[in-house]
Amino acid sequence: MLFLETKEVVKQYANHLALDKVSVQVNEQKIFGLLGPNGAGKTTLIRIINRITAPDSGEVIFKNRPLAPDDIYNIGYLPEERGLYKKMKVGEQAVYLARLKGLSAAEAKTRLKIWFKKFDILSWWDKKLEELSKGMQQKVQFIVTVVHEPELLIFDEPFSGFDPLNTELLKNEILELKEKGKTIIFSTHNMASVEEICDEIALINQSKVVLNGDVTAIRSQNKKHIFKIQTENENLQIDPTICEILSREKGYHTTTFRVRKLKDISNAEYLLFLLQQNEIISFEEEIPSMNDIFIQTVTKNN
């Protein structure tokens, strides 16, 4: 089911067009990756969804109706540039931000205490923010984003500034939120994390959506029909009409070949051909990484 949709959103700044008829569809209970190089317009789109800025034309559809002012209570937003009051006590400002998101003071406090405990920072409740390490500040920021239990969460570069341990913690939290039925928009440059957690993506380049859809579908669409084959023999017996050897790498007992499939046949048929003539140990198709697809799409576009 469609949870959020932007329809032909246009945003013109003084000197440049930030978004040019951008339409994206975010399905319910999915993690949606918003990708694109720096300055492509991701942050502008996120700000429009958050109602921080208004689009010049086009509209945002939220749960099958136009986005309304009160919908912001149903959105949690973690901006790329993190920021909290440095001189204010951690607990106090968390309560303040939660109240601005519509929670009562008492409710905010109870829920925040639970989260603080979960993230092991409860003892810092009465400390000033500037006394906390960067990682702890990030945790506070994350908690503040999710504490009002919104249905839609928007994370702009959530992993920047986190150490591997906390990245793992955060990743699990995000997946847990998805399990709980939340919809998540996730903007990042980190393509490895896209493969790991995103269900769908939209790639924005130069103010336009240049690629969108299901991650696995996109990756198989971009397949180049290249296979990695490991054999016991030093040579690969092939039919040159269906197979082209790209490289050969000799190991201790085995040899690894990269080959391209030249004929439009299924992988099973292709493997059958090869098995007839060779002692094959492993056979694997190379699926392009999101990183490759990203670079390829963006450079092709430019």
């Binding site: 912001i72 920021g83 909290l84 931000l97 998101k101 984003t145």
Partner: peptide
């Protein structure tokens, strides 16, 4: 300036 330079303003204007 404090709110602007430490970017908390972005969190706040998403709700106020």
């Amino acid at each position: 300036m404090e709110e602007k330079t430490n970017r908390i303003v972005e969190v706040i204007v998403s709700s106020v």
